[in-house]
């Protein structure tokens, strides 16, 4: 899946560690999400959406929908 995590994080001036602390996950997980090597669980995706105050479907896209 594709996502906008890095864009939204940098817009807010947060480091990966800042975001990890707010989500209650490791910095490695934030990095794996941003590099799209790992797709989050539904609860984590919903926590991310709540933090950025956006619907989940505006943060994460299926590969075929991103083109």
């Amino acid at each position: 899946m594709k996502n906008l995590l890095r864009v939204l994080r940098t817009e807010r001036g947060w480091s990966q560690l800042d975001l990890a602390e707010q989500l209650g996950v490791s910095r490695q997980t934030v990095n794996a999400l941003e590099t799209e090597r790992y797709d989050p669980s539904l609860p984590l995706a919903m926590r991310i959406a709540r933090l950025f105050e956006r619907p989940v479907e505006s943060l994460f896209f299926l590969d075929e929908d991103a083109t």
């Binding site: 996950v25 997980t29 794996a32 790992y38």
Partner: peptide, 8 residues
């Protein structure tokens, strides 16, 4: 104590 990715 690990998060979901580290457990995976």
């Amino acid at each position: 104590s690990q998060d979901e990715l580290l457990r995976r």
